[in-house]
C-alpha cells in the first residue's frame, strides 16, 4: 500500500509580501520551505508506515517549478521513501481546482493508493481546498482537520477531527484523503541516513503528458478562478490597550463604558 503525502513549497514567512500591481507574491530573496502543516502530514505518514509495516511506502508528491525538488529533499531526509515532482510549464497558473486535478492524476498514475495526506492549508495560498479537491476528483471519502488517527484496520480507519466545539470521531473506508492539523504529532527532525539519501536524491518528474492530464483541466486553462486583485486590508487604527489584574481591568472597562454612556 502507498501512503501519499502532498507537500507544497512555500516562502518562509508568515507575512508574505505581495506585488500589489501584478497581484503576485514577491518570491525573490525569500527562502523556500516545506509548508509547515505538510511536515505534520509527512510525520503521520511515517508513523502509519511504522505501525502497519509490510511493504507500505511513503511517497511525497509536490506540484511546482523544478526547484520544488528541494522541498522533496527535506522530507526524504525525514524518511519518506520516494518523491514525485509534478512539473511542466503547462501546469502554470493553476488554481486550487487545477492543482488538485493535477495531483490527483499523478497519484492515480502511481497507484496502490491507501491513504492520501495533506496539510490543513498552505501558509501562502491559505485556501485549504487542495486536499478536499483531490478527494473529490477521486470520489474518495475525506476527513479534514485530523488531530488523531485512532486506528487503521481491515481497510477501515477511525480518526478524530478537530472542530470549533471539540472533536468528531469519524470512521472511513480506505482509500481516504486526510488533511491534518498540528495537534496530530510532532514532526521528526531529519536523520543522518535520511540526509545522506536526500543529498543524492533526484525526484521522479511527471509532466502533463506523463499523467495523461486533460489539457482543459490544467494550468490557466483549467482554472476558473482568477486572482483579480490582491491587497492588504487596511490596518486597524486607534483602540486602547489596558494591562493589569482582572479586578483593575474590570474597573477601567466599567469606567470607559460609563464614559461612553453605554451603561
Amino acid at each position: 500500500m502507498n501512503i501519499f503525502v502532498c507537500i507544497k513549497q512555500v516562502p518562509n514567512t508568515t507575512e508574505v509580501k505581495w506585488d500589489l500591481e501584478k497581484g503576485t507574491l514577491i518570491r525573490e530573496g525569500v527562502e523556500s520551505i516545506v509548508n509547515p502543516f505538510d511536515l505534520y502530514a509527512v510525520e503521520e505518514g511515517l508513523k502509519i508506515k511504522e505501525k502497519i509495516g509490510g511493504d507500505t511506502k511513503v511517497i511525497a508528491i509536490t506540484m511546482g517549478p523544478p526547484q520544488a525538488k528541494e522541498a522533496l529533499r527535506d522530507v526524504i531526509a525525514m524518511g519518506a521513501d520516494e518523491g514525485i515532482l509534478v512539473s511542466d510549464r503547462a501546469f502554470a497558473g493553476a488554481d486550487t481546482l487545477a492543482t488538485s486535478y493535477s495531483l490527483y492524476k499523478a497519484i492515480e498514475k502511481m497507484g496502490d493508493i491507501g491513504i492520501i495526506l495533506a496539510g490543513k492549508q498552505a501558509i501562502d495560498g491559505d485556501t485549504g481546498q487542495v486536499g478536499p479537491g483531490i478527494a473529490s476528483w477521486f470520489g474518495y471519502p475525506q476527513i479534514t482537520y485530523v488531530k488523531k488517527i485512532v486506528e487503521i484496520k481491515d481497510n477501515k480507519m477511525v480518526a478524530e477531527r478537530l472542530t470549533d466545539y471539540g472533536y468528531d470521531i469519524v470512521e472511513s473506508e480506505l482509500p481516504v484523503v486526510l488533511t491534518v492539523v498540528k495537534e496530530i504529532n510532532e514532526p521528526r527532525l531529519p536523520s543522518l541516513r535520511g540526509k545522506m539519501k536526500a543529498k543524492k536524491f533526484e525526484p521522479t518528474v511527471f509532466t502533463a503528458n506523463d499523467i495523461n492530464a486533460d489539457e482543459n483541466r490544467i494550468g490557466l486553462q483549467g482554472s476558473p478562478t482568477q486572482v483579480k486583485k490582491v491587497f492588504s486590508p487596511p490596518k486597524k487604527e486607534g483602540g486602547e490597550k489596558f494591562e493589569g489584574e482582572a479586578e483593575e481591568l474590570s474597573e477601567i472597562l466599567f469606567g470607559k463604558l460609563k464614559e461612553l454612556k453605554i451603561v
Partner: peptide, 11 residues
C-alpha cells in the same frame, strides 16, 4: 529517542 531517531548512535 530523538538522538536515536536521527541516527546519532549509528555514527
Amino acid at each position: 529517542e530523538v538522538m536515536a531517531q536521527s541516527d546519532l548512535f549509528r555514527v
